[in-house]
Design a protein around this nucleic acid. Structure first.
Lengths: 202, 202
DNA sequence: TTCTTTGTTGACCGTTTGGTTAAGACATTT
DNA sequence: AAATGTCTTAACCAAACGGTCAACAAAGAA
């Protein structure tokens, strides 16, 4: 059974690969064309210019990085369940796209104004209000230790995302191959919630 | 009292600014020349080409990002003291150069082979062996809970560095201005050690 | 002063890059 | 088969880019 990819799909797959690995500034239209196995002019036939093509790839990437956050944070699950769900789902998705967080965060940083205009309005952005309030409520109820909700949130996200951002550094430092790195990320699905809950539970 | 910067210093300062904000691929030699207020040809007089100039800037940046790790990790302080010292020193340095971690990690990711050759050998890289062994020792002594040393280390580094990597995202999401962000990072110098120690102490 | 070294510049060069164009291939419709 | 609209290509173009060069200024050294 042969996968018959349409030209547009081939272009998008190639563009994603090249943009994510080289960034907007470092990517060449010729590289994308070669990767897709087509003529360079055909890129401009399907997507007017580099910027438009990048926007499509970036949006798709950003939607994969951000969306799950809200659905989990806004659910009615308990605080501990939310933390466990977040780590489980987030690390699963990112393990399949390890270079995505660095790509997205870097491009946001490089063009944050553009990002605000084009993404913020069209796309619902992580709104962890409910999650923050839930933490505060638990603190007041006395079911968890007194902790700053904002810092707890930042800690949760940091421990989940950073290993992918610092993947090369971690691999170099610890001498890990791809498989070992993957395994450690699998472990973190359980390690992070355990670490957090150990810290905040009374 | 006027600061009389030499041409070479002006170039390096300008190059740092442009490279860090736009990356190697996005930076233009003309931008650097303009930023330094000099002719473009003068760049090539002091530094043969773009790659050489970038290497100097990158090395300087990487040395600022990595070195403190070892000195702290290899000291004879207690585990808890090391964790506190690390957060204190690291966040202090990074607060003065908030865009440095993203720059360095991104460039490593984009050219990890080159990085290995040129940096690994010349520069001592973070070698947290002693720190990892120290954790294991404490676990066996029973002074802290049973925890994977590697995951504890990754957690510590993640919580310290990631907020700078994800700075724009965090600012957007939480609606923080520069001052508020700085304040939160100041708080984290104490919040992170407290969070960790709460989690691992018996 | 003259000579030599170092620092600085505008103009220029070859290549790369994003993008265009005109023409042809291909399939579908009439 | 002729006409039509979609897809694909090779060749081309102008601008931007990294880098060079010859000339010239500044400052000591002889």
């Amino acid at each position: 059974m042969v996968k018959e990819k349409s030209t547009e799909e081939k272009i998008l797959a190639a563009a994603k690969k090249v943009f994510v690995s080289k960034g907007m500034a470092g990517a060449r239209m010729q590289d994308i064309a070669d990767e897709a196995g087509i003529n360079k002019a055909l890129l401009h036939y399907y997507f007017r210019n580099k910027e438009k093509l990048f926007e499509v790839v970036f949006m798709e990437a950003a939607q994969k990085l951000f969306p799950k956050i809200n659905t989990i944070f806004e659910s009615d699950a308990s605080l501990f369940d939310k933390i466990e769900n977040f780590c489980e789902e987030y690390i699963t998705v990112m393990s399949e796209n390890p270079y995505l967080p660095l790509f997205v965060l870097n491009e946001i940083s490089k063009d944050s104004e553009n990002f605000l205009e084009k993404f913020w309005n069209k796309q619902q952005f992580p709104q962890p209000q409910k999650f923050l309030e839930q933490i505060e409520k638990e603190v007041k109820k006395g079911t968890i230790k007194k902790i700053s909700p904002l810092h707890l949130l930042i800690n949760l996200i940091s421990m989940s995302i950073f290993p992918f951002v610092g993947k090369p550094m971690i691999q170099f430092t610890m001498g890990l191959d791809e498989l070992q790195f993957r395994n450690i990320m699998q472990q973190r699905k359980k390690e992070i919630p355990k670490f957090i809950i150990d810290s905040i539970k009374k």
